[in-house]
């Protein structure tokens, strides 16, 4: 497997000279194509900052991030949007769907931004909706469907353009446990059947147990790293809980 994403010694500082907060303090890791990687940590551990840096929404203070050997920290401001729409897929905690568009249109939106031909758009949209089991609600508006369906729509939007990597920020954060499970199963399928590389930030051990590899962050550093390998999900879940216990006082943050 080839290395898709390489994070190399990145740091992110906030504040002024006298009072520096290191949100990320020298993190390095690699993600291989086809991996489903999870990033865990308590609030303030730097996991969202890390995701934002990879998503080109935030800038690093030092270090480099390579996607397919291209240094994304060096991309010029005017090319960022293009890079983002061609390479990245996003799933947000609060769905970020547009109320004025139907579910179908929300999925198609990303394709129109990428200037895909009109015929293609229709075909791709319906295809992905079938795979994610939302073809029945295509003509509904976001406020007419459940949270789980909304997040599946967001997932469809994230993958329909076949991005190099999908970045998911607490995707189950706003869902009840049943919908959360359904969504994670779909993400697992996206990862296994559609070969999507997914990087997911979460603080929920259940969500994390669907990943193939998990990085634990504490105070802006990588604290631990575990891989699922051939283990059963239940077993992996327990392992995650163990690591969280090791993280110390912060376990109170974890469900």
């Amino acid at each position: 497997m080839e290395t898709l994403l390489k994070v190399d010694q990145i740091q992110k500082y906030y504040g002024n000279k006298d009072n520096i907060t290191k949100a990320i303090d020298g993190i390095s890791f690699e993600v291989e194509e086809g991996e489903f990687i999870g990033i865990m940590g308590a609030s303030g551990s730097g996991k969202t900052t890390l995701l934002n840096c990879i998503a080109t929404i935030d800038n690093v203070s030092s270090g480099h991030i390579y996607l397919n050997k291209r240094d994304i920290t060096e991309i010029k401001e005017k090319d960022i949007a293009k890079f983002r729409r061609e390479n990245l897929g996003f799933i947000f905690q609060d769905f970020n769907l547009l109320d004025t568009l139907t579910i179908e249109e929300n999925i198609a939106l990303i394709l129109t931004i990428n200037k895909i031909s009109e015929k293609e758009i229709d075909k791709k949209t319906i295809e992905i909706a079938k795979k994610l089991g939302i073809e029945d609600i295509l003509n509904k508006y976001p406020y007419q469907v459940s949270g789980g369906q909304k997040q599946r729509c967001a997932s469809a939007r994230a993958i329909v353009n076949s991005p190099k990597i999908i970045l998911a920020d607490e995707p189950t954060g706003a869902l009840d446990s049943k919908s959360a499970r359904q969504l994670l199963e779909i993400m697992e399928e996206m990862n296994k059947k559609m070969k999507a590389t997914i990087l997911m930030v979460t603080h929920d051990p259940l969500s994390a147990s669907y990943c193939s590899k998990i990085l634990f962050l504490k105070d802006g550093k990588i604290f631990n790293k575990i891989e699922r390998g051939e283990k059963e999900r239940k077993q992996f879940y327990n392992e995650i809980l163990d690591v969280l216990a090791l993280l110390g006082g912060d376990t109170r943050d974890v469900r």
Binding site: L98, D99, T100, L101, E105, A108, L109, L111, T112, I113, K115, I116, E118, K119, I121, D122
Partner: peptide, 19 residues
């Protein structure tokens, strides 16, 4: 009409407008 709808950024604009 999907081919019109998916052209450029029509969809977003018209939805904003019609709503």
């Amino acid at each position: 009409n999907k081919s019109r709808k998916y052209k450029k950024n029509n969809m977003f604009l018209y939805r904003n407008l019609t709503s």
